[in-house]
Design a protein around this nucleic acid. Structure first.
Length: 414
RNA sequence: GGAGGGGUGGCCGAGUCUGGUCUAAGGCGCGCCCCUGCUAAGGGCGAGGCGGCCCAAUGGGUCCGCCCGCGGGUUCGAAUCCCGCCCCCUCCA
């Protein structure tokens, strides 16, 4: 949810943000109107309620005819109060719906849509096309797509043998780095309540991407960001230092509407594993924290000895919670293009406002915290690792940083 | 899944049977002050969250409303009575 004070004082900033995102400006006016009518309803109810309380005290002390007279008056008032209360509830619901419908205010992201990103930097040599990741994985019996499909359907797979071990090594490398920088290691639930899913903004325009279990009204998380964000729901945090968590979880995505896209291998799958960084910090520190997140992501890609680039994602391609987003894209030689492997978003106070997560400022007043998230290590990284480190004979050079976790310097073809 | 017990302020805990100064006792802890020859003991004062309204308006207000797990209901009036749900504990399956 956006800051209502910003909306009241500078509605044009919010309208401009909507234009940048390519979304409707009327949502802004709907919210302004809903805010207005909510306040009217509240004022009306409170006036009646105050009168009712005053009269109630008199009733308690009155006797005989005086009491009868008071009761006659107060009975009518009772009905009015009830009606006014219902009006407040309705106005608040309308207000909440309107509030949820407005995405975070864009800050500094380049204008345009998905293809209008800015390239911030490019690192490493771009390898020529060789065997693709699936061919290599099959050579090493690291991934079994066929049986994945047999057991669970398309876009499912088994990581087998060295593939499974390689993923574990990768995730542990990520977790070790996070812990080294002071993150608290977390293994999170994969199923969350609707309010947790809503709190992170995933039930908006991306709702069709999310698996829902109707029998229990639970959602499967698409990233541990969801569980980590909701971890401090309804709390007031001490934010002398940012609170940083590294969440390890399986992630689930329906990939609705992506039929025919990336059907080969593990680039686009329904289930994968990920170590995600998450930070609760002072709003004034959010921009710096975002840069740190990006730096940590790059550090890990460096350890994996991968060629990659960093892009500044355009406004129209931001998630509803993000005010700005940087993606790291690793070079995938078989496709001769860069593919996203990490993504870090600054959600400012948007998620915290939904989840009611606050801190105390210098005057001991409460205010919403800022939240940020970023990918550290994820299944998809196996693709560039295999492809960029393949050698002519099909063997795979294991990056130095991964060797301690994998116990091998090279994956030889059996 | 079944039976029972419980959910009250930062924490503990009284109040619920018997609805109305509950404007939620008391304790612990916390902050400031006093006293005290010094990390003790004692005394005093002060603390919550959300929202609305008003003003000489980013700081105020002896102003108002809401908050006793959540949501409904009964009643002139609900922490208290009734119904539903959630969570925790004990036992059973």
């Amino acid at each position: 949810m956006i800051d209502l004070r910003l909306l009241r004082d500078n509605p044009d900033i919010v309208r401009a943000s909507q234009r940048l995102r390519g979304e409707s400006e009327t949502a802004v006016d709907t919210l302004l109107a809903a805010d207005e009518s909510r306040r009217k309803a509240v004022a009306h109810f409170e006036g009646l309620r105050a009168e009712q309380k005053t009269l109630g005290k008199q009733v308690a002390q009155a006797k005989g005819e005086e009491k009868t007279a008071l009761l006659a008056r107060t009975k009518g008032l009772s009905a009015e109060v009830k009606e006014a209360d219902a009006a407040v509830t309705a106005a608040e619901e309308a207000m909440r719906a309107a509030h949820l419908a407005v995405p975070n205010v864009v800050d500094a992201a380049p204008p345009g849509g998905e293809d209008d990103y800015l390239v911030l930097k490019e690192i490493g040599e771009l390898a020529a096309a060789g065997r693709d990741h699936l061919e290599l994985a099959e050579l090493h019996r690291a991934i079994d797509m066929e049986r994945g499909a047999k057991v669970s359907g398309s876009r499912f797979y088994f990581l087998t043998g060295v593939g499974a071990l390689m993923q574990l090594a990768l995730l542990q490398l990520g977790m070790a780095q996070a812990v080294q920088y002071g993150f608290t290691a977390m293994i999170t639930p994969s199923l969350v309540k609707p309010e947790s899913m809503e709190g992170t903004g995933y039930l908006g325009s991306h709702a069709s991407e999310v698996y829902h279990l109707p029998a229990d009204d639970l959602y499967l998380i698409g990233t541990s960001e969801v569980a980590l964000a909701a971890y401090h729901k309804d709390e007031i945090l001490d934010l002398a230092e940012p609170k940083r968590y590294a969440g390890w979880s399986s992630c689930y995505r329906r990939e609705a509407g992506s039929y025919g896209k990336d059907t080969r291998g593990i680039i686009r799958v329904h289930q994968f594993d990920k170590v995600e960084m998450f930070s609760f910090c002072h709003p004034d520190q959010a921009i710096e924290e975002h840069q740190r997140m990006l730096a940590w992501e790059e550090e890990l890609l460096g350890k994996l000895e991968l060629a990659y680039r960093v892009i500044d994602v355009a406004a129209g391609d931001l998630g509803s919670s993000a005010t700005r987003k940087f993606d790291c894209e690793a070079w995938v030689p078989s496709q001769q293009q860069y593919r996203e492997v990490t993504s870090t978003s600054n959600c400012t106070t948007f998620q915290a406002r939904r989840l009611n997560i606050r801190y105390r400022d210098a005057e001991a007043k409460t205010a919403p915290v800022a939240t940020l998230n970023g990918t550290l290590a994820t299944t998809r990284m196996l693709v560039p690792i295999l492809e960029q480190h393949q050698q002519p004979d099909g063997s795979i050079r294991v990056p130095k940083a991964l060797q301690p976790f994998l116990g091998k310097e090279v994956l030889e073809v059996a």
